[in-house]
Structures are given as structure tokens and as C-alpha cells.
């Protein structure tokens, strides 16, 4: 589509939507959000980019092969269960650690967050593969 308004809006909305997808990912454990919704939002951000600039431009904007991205996500999600196995607990048992980060304070980081990041990458890659293949005609 050849519209100046759409192109300008897409260029502004892409970073904004990506920031919000990360916000959804990080607040997902205690509040509305999570890896799945965050992945969908970031996939729709690149779908908007594809509507404005075309499919190839969107693929270039992602910068990584979508199938590799989806596979990487599943791998991260599976790896998040391994620490529990090492400690001889049931697979995917959650472990939390409090990490003091200067300027922010104490931040709780654990394997559920790693699992959510894996889900995020998988949903992002798979949703984008489906949408872009449908948009191809």
C-alpha cells in the first residue's frame, strides 16, 4: 500500500508496540500479560510494518530467520526446566533468585521468566510466519 500517512505511522508504532510487548512480557507473572500476549503484540507490530512497507521489508526488520526464532524460543522454554532436574525436583519447578540491580532495586529473576521469554519468541516467530505467508497471496 502506498500511503504516506500509513508509512509514517508504522515507523512510529513499531518501536512503541515492541516496548509494550516487552512490558506485557515482564509484568506477566503477577498482572495481565505474559509471554503469549507479548509475542502476539510484537508479531502484530511487524504485521503492521509489512502492511505499510511490504513483506520483504518486514522480514528484513525482524533481522533473524523466523523459523530459527521459533525454534530458539522452544529451546529456551525447555532449558528453563533443566535447573529443577539438576536439583532432582520435578521438571519445570520454578526457582527464583533476587538480584540487586543498581538504580532499580532488587529484581526477582527466575526460571518462569525464562520460560515466558521462550514462549514470547515462539509465538512471535510462528504468528509472523503464518501472517506473512497468508499476506503473500
Amino acid at each position: 500500500m502506498n500511503s504516506l500517512v500509513l508509512r509514517t505511522a508504522a515507523r512510529f508504532l513499531l518501536p512503541l508496540l515492541l516496548v509494550f510487548s516487552v512490558v506485557l512480557l515482564l509484568q506477566g507473572h503477577n498482572e495481565p500479560g505474559g509471554g503469549f500476549v507479548g509475542g502476539l503484540v510484537s508479531a502484530s507490530a511487524f504485521t503492521l510494518y509489512a502492511v505499510a512497507f511490504g513483506r520483504d521489508a518486514a522480514l528484513r526488520a525482524v533481522g533473524i530467520n523466523l523459523q530459527v526464532l521459533a525454534g530458539l524460543g522452544v529451546t529456551i522454554a525447555i532449558l528453563s526446566g533443566v535447573p529443577a532436574l539438576v536439583l532432582s525436583e520435578p521438571f519445570l519447578t520454578g526457582h527464583w533468585a533476587t538480584v540487586p540491580i543498581p538504580g532499580i532495586g532488587d529484581v526477582k529473576i527466575g526460571t518462569p521468566l525464562l520460560f515466558d521469554i521462550g514462549v514470547y519468541c515462539t509465538v512471535w516467530g510462528v504468528a509472523l510466519i503464518m501472517v506473512l505467508n497468508l499476506a503473500e497471496e
Binding site: V41, T47, V51
Partner: peptide
Amino acid sequence: LIMFLGTAA
């Protein structure tokens, strides 16, 4: 933010 995408599509 997403609504805009639907209208554009």
C-alpha cells in the same frame, strides 16, 4: 495501538 493495524489491513 493494535486497532490501527486492523483498519489498515
